[in-house]
Design a protein around this nucleic acid. Structure first.
Lengths: 153, 153
DNA sequence: TATTGTTATACTCTATAACTATA
DNA sequence: TATAGTTATAGAGTATAACAATA
């Protein structure tokens, strides 16, 4: 597929990432949602009502971009901006009931997909595969954090 | 990290994809290369000299975007446009010697990263993990192809 | 002085639609 | 008529920098 020159495990993981991204763009086409906006919704579902600063950190983008993303999500009825009770500079971004339902469905879809993908794995390999993927994710997170620390002090 | 609500295997795979994307943007910052442009370079390294139509199919973007990406890569000295020998409508996009070196280095970096990530996996799990990730990638490719077939006929 | 969110500006990626030159 | 590439246009995501209100 993409970035693929061989079929090493790394190439397979890159392929998986690419397929997720493509499928996500496809799945939300026409709904007003986009990958970046869904990312914000996941952050809100995970953290609860949050300031835009917190969302920016969680999503790994600049506060300026969160302003635009929250603008769009507010226009489409997925989030509300409310005054922060203790800090008049800040706003609390909250999921609307509609978006809560959307996220519940999305979580069910995730569980379904998780089951479908694992069903492709030999049952005897299940435990090893789950351990291995978790180990790879942790190692990669450490390598990226190290690279970012060196590159952008 | 992102899109993560639990730590299912699916969540781990999403996390891995996100980390790859972030690291890629970081790694090429300041070089004039971007993920989309590197995607084109990988396609050329993999296929050899190609028409823009072929690159568009390989990269999964529209021909219009390939025009812009090849423009940028030509300006930065990574590719050349040459007339197609048999079809005067088409051009053949070719890697420059500089880009050939860049891709050779990138391939070595991939091999290194592959080795580093697998080193995080228990040796007894290696074979199962490699089989499992390949099976997941194939299953996901099939599911996405099916979804795209249904959604965009 | 530092933080929160915004406006201003610019670049990249992406898509659709219409056009030119060739097949 | 169909294909390869381009121009035109538009929307989305991202970033930096400067600014207002508040802490």
């Amino acid at each position: 597929m993409s970035y693929i020159h061989d079929m090493t495990t790394l190439d397979r993981l890159l392929q998986i990432g690419d397929l997720f991204a493509r499928d996500m763009s496809r799945a939300f086409a026409g709904t007003g949602l986009t990958p970046a906006r869904v990312h914000v919704l996941w952050a809100l579902a995970h953290r609860g009502p949050s300031t835009q600063q917190a969302l920016a950190r969680e999503c790994g983008v600049t506060p300026r971009n969160i302003t635009a993303l929250v603008d769009a999500l507010e226009a489409s009825g997925h989030v509300r901006r409310a005054p922060h009770p203790d800090d008049r500079r800040a706003v609390l971004v909250t999921l609307t009931p509609t978006a809560e339902e959307t996220m519940a469905q999305m979580r069910r879809d995730h569980e379904d997909l998780d089951a479908r993908l694992l069903a492709a794995v030999d049952p005897d390999d299940h435990a090893a595969v789950e351990r291995g993927i978790a180990a790879i994710a942790d190692r990669l997170a450490a390598l990226v954090a190290e690279a970012e620390g060196r590159g952008a002090p």
